[in-house]
């Protein structure tokens, strides 16, 4: 129980750190990196809440959700980087 709580709270902490960066940075690249950190926080929380004690196997639902979430986050980030390159090409 304590372990689950620790992991969950760590996830929340990472989420808040990422959120702070995403809101405060002016540079779009830093903002994207912060969003990645923020996303990692959400995913850690999901992994932590799947824990159901030593006797039971982990709850598969949050794990399935995390996988979907990671796929979405990766594709969004790829798109952001592609747009960033487009933006650079206008400046050159």
């Amino acid at each position: 129980m304590l372990q689950e709580l620790l992991y969950g709270l760590a996830g929340l902490a990472v989420f808040v750190i990422g959120l702070r960066g995403a809101l405060l940075h002016d540079n779009w690249l830093l903002r994207l990196l912060s969003l990645n950190v923020c996303g990692a926080g959400v995913f850690i929380t999901f992994v932590a809440i799947a824990y159901r004690g030593l006797t039971l196997p982990a709850d598969p639902v949050p794990h399935a959700l995390v996988l979907t979430g990671i796929v979405v986050a990766v594709s969004a980030m790829a798109m952001a980087l592609a747009l960033g390159r487009r933006l650079r090409s206008y400046d050159d």
Binding site: F15, L19, A22, L23, W28, R31, L32, L35, C38, G39, V42, G69, A73, A76, M79, A80, L83, G84, L87
Partner: peptide, 15 residues
């Protein structure tokens, strides 16, 4: 890019 960042932020908070 700004729209994407805002959208991701909104979705993560929702998630």
């Amino acid at each position: 890019i700004r729209y994407l960042g805002i959208g991701l932020l909104g979705s993560l908070v929702f998630l």
